[in-house]
């Protein structure tokens, strides 16, 4: 079988979004739950960039947080290099933690404003006890140069840097524990385009240099197109389609993937119109029955309103759609 570094199996997460107990009693309301992620399975292969795309409420960030252990899954499991992460604790977990890292969306919030840059980058080194004393300093200097900054920048504070430079610092911190796998949660969506290009290029170079595996989370299909080898399309907490990037962009199967592709503005489209997309994303607290996409789907049939479509393997990925399954697409 393929060489999977991370395997996600039937991952689910629900959030309790009920009002406080007293309000519920007085207003006679039941508890309310939001299903952010429902029964999601995929695998990330060693050395590849796997992207998760989706709009707001698709659950992509929730999945990222569960993978790095910031959130506990409500169901399913995450297997990292053959070791299940759920239920692992203590020394074993510590060993696992050293092997993955995360890069966050907002470079203005992801660096502690009261810490010097050097301290920020050194934190993982110290926490994992990878080096000590002057060695830490040398390592920080090396990392700063790897991400295109200077050794002297270690003495500065985050506010002295621009957004793009801060994201470089965040990348240096992520690299400092020498991880194999990095979860990148919208790493460029807070940056300007010219800076975004710098960061994306840097991330690709680092991947080649250190043999990194990325989980790349984004709402921007053009960025994903540029970065990913394989892509999972999420809609309201469920995977609609998983496919190789090239195939997804030339031949999207799931109606939602098609819609998403049509909606992307493109520079080549001066004066041309995007295809009109019907409707908006429903409220995830009260999602539609059956296939969550059915109210917006052009290929909707009766069955879509009643049953949740299963993931059907197709080529190198899968599609969860009755229309595709029945050959109506």
């Amino acid at each position: 079988m393929s060489d999977a570094l991370v395997r996600i199996e039937g991952l689910s997460r629900t959030f309790d979004v009920s009002k406080p107990w007293l309000n519920r009693v007085i207003e006679r309301e039941p508890k309310a739950f939001l299903t952010a992620v429902a029964d999601v399975s995929f695998e990330i292969r060693r050395g590849e960039t796997f992207a998760l795309v989706g709009e707001s409420g698709s659950g992509k960030s929730t999945i990222a947080k569960m993978i790095v252990g910031l959130l506990a899954p409500s169901g399913g499991r995450i297997v990292f290099d053959g070791q299940p992460m759920t239920g692992t604790d203590g020394a074993a977990m510590r060993k696992l933690r050293k092997r993955f890292q995360m890069i966050f969306q907002d470079p203005f919030a992801s660096l502690n404003p009261r810490w010097r840059v050097g301290e920020i980058i050194a934190e993982p080194i110290r926490t994992f006890g990878l080096a000590s004393g002057a060695e830490v300093r040398r390592e920080v200097a090396r990392l700063l140069e790897v991400v295109g900054l200077g050794a002297r920048d270690a003495a500065k504070f985050p506010h002295e840097f621009s957004g793009g430079q801060r994201q470089r610092i965040a990348i240096a911190r992520a690299l400092s524990s020498r991880p194999e796998f990095i979860v990148c949660d919208e790493p460029t969506s807070a940056l300007d385009v010219s800076v975004q290009a710098q960061i994306l290029n840097l991330m690709r170079d680092l991947q080649d240099e250190f043999g990194l595996t990325y989980l790349f989370i984004s709402h921007d299909l053009s960025v994903v197109r540029h970065m990913a080898g394989r892509i999972g399309v999420l809609y309201l907490g469920r995977l609609a389609e998983v496919a190789e990037a090239k195939r997804l962009f030339t031949d999207p199967r799931h109606p939602y993937s098609r819609m998403l592709l049509d909606a992307v503005p493109d520079l080549a489209m001066t004066g041309r119109r995007r295809k009109q997309v019907e409707g908006e994303i429903p409220n995830p607290i009260d999602p539609p029955s059956g296939c969550a996409f059915h109210p917006r789907c052009p290929l909707v049939a009766d069955r879509c309103r009643r049953e949740v479509p299963r993931a059907v393997p197709s080529g190198d990925g899968m599609t969860a759609c009755f229309a595709v399954e029945e050959g109506r697409g």
């Binding site: 252990g69 910031l70 890292q101 995360m102 992801s110 502690n112 404003p113 934190e123 926490t127």
Partner: peptide
């Protein structure tokens, strides 16, 4: 809930350390 605290949690920093060194100064 800020990302710098999440970054410390990802590497498994001790909660007391997060409280004292990350959150308290801020």
């Amino acid at each position: 809930n800020k990302e710098y605290v999440q970054a410390a949690r990802v590497i498994g920093a001790h909660p007391v350390k997060i409280l004292v060194r990350h959150i308290l100064p801020n």
